[in-house]
Simulated assay, not measured.
Amino acid sequence: MLKAKVVGRVWSTKKVEGLPNGAFLEVEIDGGARIVAFDVLGTGVDEHVLVATGSVAAAYFPAPHPPVDALVIGSIDPE
């Protein structure tokens, strides 16, 4: 699991069939690297989030699992 901050949205004109409603977000993980994560929570820019990666992220969805390898799984409250 990674701690990250949402820095932007990634727009897609087409999605894989079977992918639920949600958004692709660009998140910056600790250390400065950026990845794209799928979000089903309705998270906004500048929010801090937890991101699950790999097969754990894909397993959230019912079979057949869509090709998602980073998933926003929670919001972190500011300190």
Rank of each mutant, 00 (worst) to 15 (best):
A70R: 04
V72A: 09
F61L: 00
K3D: 02
G54D: 10
E47M: 09
G32N: 03
I35P: 07
A52G: 03
Y60E: 14
G31D: 10
P62I: 02
G31T: 12
G44A: 12
A70S: 13
G54V: 10
A37W: 12
I29R: 15
V51L: 11
A33E: 15
E47K: 04
G18F: 00
P78W: 02
L2T: 03
A4W: 07
D30H: 05
T53N: 04
A70P: 05
Y60H: 15
R9W: 03
I76K: 03
R9H: 09
V27R: 01
L50C: 05
A23P: 00
E26Q: 13
W11F: 12
G31Q: 09
K14V: 12
A52Q: 09
Y60D: 06
R34Y: 02
V40P: 04
G18L: 01
A52R: 04
W11R: 08
A63V: 11
P20E: 00
G44K: 13
P64L: 09
G42H: 09
P62G: 12
M1F: 03
L19I: 05
L41E: 02
S55T: 14
E26T: 12
G74R: 05
G54R: 13
D69G: 02
V49W: 01
I35M: 14
V56K: 15
S55M: 13
A4F: 03
V10D: 02
L2N: 05
S55N: 11
V36K: 11
F61T: 02
G42F: 13
A70L: 06
V45Q: 11
I73C: 06
S75V: 15
V40Y: 12
R34H: 12
K5C: 01
A4M: 04
H48W: 11
R34E: 13
P78L: 11
V51G: 12
S55W: 10
V40M: 15
D69C: 01
G44I: 02
A37H: 10
L19T: 01
T13K: 08
I73L: 05
P78I: 08
D30R: 13
V27K: 06
F24E: 07
K3H: 05
G44E: 14
T53P: 02
A33F: 12
E47Q: 15
F24R: 09
V72E: 04
D77W: 12
D39Q: 13
N21E: 14
S55F: 10
T43E: 07
P67G: 04
A57C: 07
G32V: 07
G31V: 13
A70Q: 03
E26R: 11
